[in-house]
Design a protein around this nucleic acid. Sequence first.
DNA 1: ATATTTCATCGTAGTTTAACGATAAATAGT
DNA 2: ACTATTTATCGTTAAACTACGATGAAATAT
Lengths: 119, 119
Amino acid sequence: MTVLEPEPLRSAEVALDDPATKRSAQLTKALGHPVRLAILKLLTQRDTCFCGDFTDVLPLAQSTVSQHLKVLKDAGIINGTSSGVRTCYCLNTEGVEELNECLESLSDMFKMTSRPDCC
Amino acid sequence: MTVLEPEPLRSAEVALDDPATKRSAQLTKALGHPVRLAILKLLTQRDTCFCGDFTDVLPLAQSTVSQHLKVLKDAGIINGTSSGVRTCYCLNTEGVEELNECLESLSDMFKMTSRPDCC
DNA sequence: ATATTTCATCGTAGTTTAACGATAAATAGT
DNA sequence: ACTATTTATCGTTAAACTACGATGAAATAT
């Protein structure tokens, strides 16, 4: 009978399964496109936008803009509610709070005890 | 002779051309994968890692890990210098500073005068 | 009733990403 | 001189992303 070797600690593998890590990745991924950043910026400036407001301002087809809006909505960062023939978009307060926490926690992670680059 | 209509302001279209917007998108996109977040976390914890340190800990092929490292390196977030047969990876101080500024500026953008979701 | 507007969705095409195994180059060990 | 180890890169595959035009549904206007 063989002696069982202790499993090595695999901290990062755990981090991969961590829901918080997955969520952070989803949120940052949703931010990771210039068009989506522009959409979000516009929403912080005007706080209410119809889909057409974005297409007026972005050099993209309406269907493309709609797709980007869907990405942001699926990530929980914005709301979209149809109001009559139009759809009203705005920031999702809860999602934005979560996003801010995510951004802050990432920022905290990178607060290094200033050391020179080792390589 | 027809009167020239004033061009509508197209602020977000400008934002798309903005290098800062593109850079923010590049940085957040680089963060937007669980494996890359795990790699970065490990680097903040151990401040020096060889490629093998990551592959020991991640449930991925060495070539895949190498690809993720390349993404982070191309984004300027980490350094990689070969030292002998191995390659030493660490955080890129300058890139991390830039990243922190990016994260903070995004966070600032979302600091809303708490209003209820309009839709 | 009909036409127009607004927008989501579908289908499609081209590009990029993410994963793998295989390989090659370079160093270190025997 | 070989052999091991380490790691970047290549080739490949499958999936996801980005963009577009076309279409259809729903509400509004004529």
